[in-house]
């Protein structure tokens, strides 16, 4: 088979271009999944959040702006969930116990607002020992608020076959400046707490 100069040039060009595209598409060969890409992006550049209208377990209106100047840990839940949300609830309880005082504030947000009315939110909070002040349970007030919220956080919720949802569950930390600045695994509470102490 002839292998001329043109073949060498185009093959090399394809390989270089292909390598560059792969580099770009995986953040320098570090993020191969959308979840790791989301976490890296937030770390590199803390993300401002949309002004969405929420209401808490007592029906009180709530917004991220209420937490200005204060750190806030956010988790996304739905109250019927009996799998990963248990870990989420447990992680939040641990954070609350390990870091007494009000910092960070804790907020569990339901992505199933049609089902999770304030009564159900309250019941969820009681199940995990939320005090309703430092740790509040909330839901977005409208479908638009929900969509904006999930898009800003990069949370994807999909229906499963048994009437529930699967979602990329994590602990989201919002800084005092109101920006989403860190996303951690549920089972890395120790590291999360240590990071918070260093950061303070």
């Amino acid at each position: 088979m002839m292998f001329g100069r043109r073949a060498l040039a185009t093959t090399t060009a394809c390989a270089l271009l292909g390598g560059a595209v792969l580099w770009w598409g995986s953040d320098g060969f570090t993020a191969f999944t959308a979840e790791s890409a989301r976490r890296r992006a937030v770390l590199a550049e803390p993300r401002p959040l949309p002004a969405v209208a929420l209401e808490d377990q007592d029906g009180r209106p709530l917004a991220f702006a209420d937490y200005a100047g204060r750190r806030l840990a956010v988790e996304f839940i739905y109250t019927r969930c009996d799998t990963v949300c248990y870990s989420l609830g447990a992680a939040f309880r641990q954070i609350g116990e390990r870091l007494p005082g009000g910092d960070p504030a804790l907020l569990s947000i339901s992505f199933d607002p049609a089902h999770d009315d304030p009564a159900r939110l309250r019941e969820y909070g009681e199940r995990f020992g939320a005090d309703g002040q430092r740790w509040r349970i909330a839901r977005p007030r409208s479908g638009d608020d929900l969509a904006a919220l999930l898009a800003a956080f990069g949370v994807v919720v999909i229906a499963d076959e048994i009437g529930g949802f699967e979602h990329n569950a994590a602990i989201h930390l919002i800084g005092g400046d109101g920006r989403l600045r860190q996303i951690s695994d549920l089972d890395a509470v120790d590291a999360f707490v240590a990071g918070l102490a260093d950061d303070a």
Partner: peptide, 25 residues
């Protein structure tokens, strides 16, 4: 296009990109 090797190289890189779970997502 530079012959079969260049074609296969282009195809392999494109295929690798679309095999990234991120790309599918």
């Amino acid at each position: 296009a530079g012959g079969p090797l260049a074609c296969l190289t282009a195809a392999s890189f494109a295929a690798t990109y679309w095999m990234l779970p991120r790309a599918l997502d």
